[in-house]
Design a protein around this nucleic acid. Sequence first.
DNA 1: GAATATATGGAGTCATGACTTCGGATGTCA
DNA 2: TGACATCCGAAGTCATGACTCCATATATTC
Lengths: 191, 191
Amino acid sequence: MSTSASGRPQRVDARHNRGRILDVAEEVFGKGGRSASTEEVARLAEVGIATVFRHFPTKAALVEAVLVRRFDRLREHAEGLLGSADAGAAFFDFFSHLVADAATKIAIGEALHDLTGDTDGDAATASLGLRRAFGALLRRAQEAGAVRDDAELPEVYALLVATSRAASQPHVDAEVRARMLAIVFDGLAPR
Amino acid sequence: MSTSASGRPQRVDARHNRGRILDVAEEVFGKGGRSASTEEVARLAEVGIATVFRHFPTKAALVEAVLVRRFDRLREHAEGLLGSADAGAAFFDFFSHLVADAATKIAIGEALHDLTGDTDGDAATASLGLRRAFGALLRRAQEAGAVRDDAELPEVYALLVATSRAASQPHVDAEVRARMLAIVFDGLAPR
DNA sequence: GAATATATGGAGTCATGACTTCGGATGTCA
DNA sequence: TGACATCCGAAGTCATGACTCCATATATTC
């Protein structure tokens, strides 16, 4: 990724621009969803449109790169929590964190929604990795008696995706989001 | 609506086409979301594209007409349940019904998401009417002791929208949906 | 600091989809 | 059944946004 196909190292300005484009794209797609235009990304990154397409051959590839980075970070976060002492808190904290995160990242919610079940592409792979890590958190919380035993990953993950998307509704503020999560968490408590 | 602006009654072929276009549009936008093309609506309705635009001046107007009709039906359904004896069952049945309904109507879920909070436009008005009727169902269920008292409409409605959208995920089948709802409903039960 | 491969940006092209125009068809009413 | 307003579909126009070309600029190497 840091060297061109010919084996020679990428020029520093090129590497710098690539990172900048990724950062801006995360911001732009986070705010406007996938339908935000590539031109806006270029404008805010202060590069020409051609530069964007040189680094990412298609818009889909750019979106995918953004999602992979974000999913990987979330997965790392989840995996980090696997070592924590309180398995219940780890599970619920991560759930809350992801929902709050998605609240400002429309594209993430969209992608979680659309990609779940897909198997092709790097973003789908990263999404699956996140789902697996979340599944491990869930299992540990269940073994610790913090989450009901009869809840299985598909429905819990569906709830995670659902509440994430709901959180990006314009008028769902932090308070409503917290109360919504409180209801879901009560539903996940052991019977 | 059944007469033209000049006061003369609409020709029967025109009225017939209008209804047919609405039906097909509900199907097409339900399946593909708002981004489905007007041309496909025309093709499946077996009319020319111009006919669609004659009846609905813009694509947005067509989508709005579809949504108004659907929201109104849902609201009527909710209002009908206000008379039922079991207030708890009425609330949960309507919740389940709307989620199952949205599972096959992507545009409905999108609209519920986007319109909530809006105040302009007929679809927003219809959406608000649905929300009000749902609020009445909720209050009655709370008074009957079937739903926890501290749950307020904003978060419960957000949950309704959230689970509706989740239900339209490709791999969320009826079983997963039912288990997801079971968790939410347990969370809504009195403490 | 000169040579050269690499990177850049702005002006294109092209496809898509919303919307319009207009000659012809059809329901309606006397 | 004839006159006519209304309605129709096919072939347009136009704007948007993804993607490309090429002359210029800059990093890197010796």
